[in-house]
């Protein structure tokens, strides 16, 4: 799973969001590091929707403009959980090794 896809799924965990809402949430989640362009956002959304990890929740009119809200599906939730577990495992391995190295260096 790519980082934008992971962040997009994470952005939808606490509820449906529309296009710009997702962009904002991803920026917040990544501490401003990932700023998705609109073309990139919809590329990722298309792919996740094709894999049935996200789905259209509802449409709303906002000042005469179309807002489509997307939400996580059950399989999206499972995919995100699996990816988060995998990444957490990698991080734990890296931390363990760094601790061991630091302990070795101190000795």
């Amino acid at each position: 799973m790519t980082e934008p896809a992971f962040l997009l799924l994470t952005a939808l965990v606490d509820g449906p969001r529309h296009g710009y809402g997702i962009v904002q949430e991803i920026e917040k989640l990544s501490d401003g590091r990932v700023q998705l362009k609109i073309g990139t956002l919809y590329g990722v959304l298309d792919r996740l929707a094709a894999d049935e990890l996200v789905t259209l929740d509802r449409e709303e009119a906002q000042q005469g403009r179309l807002r489509r809200y997307y939400r996580l599906t059950e399989s999206g939730m499972r995919a995100l959980e699996a990816e988060a577990t995998r990444l957490a495992g990698n991080i734990e391995s890296a931390r363990r090794r760094l601790r061991a190295r630091q302990a070795g260096g101190m000795a």
Binding site: H18, G19, Y20, V23, I38, Y42, L66, R67
Partner: peptide, 9 residues
Amino acid sequence: EMVCAFLEG
């Protein structure tokens, strides 16, 4: 929706 998202940003 792309136009909407772009203009909001």
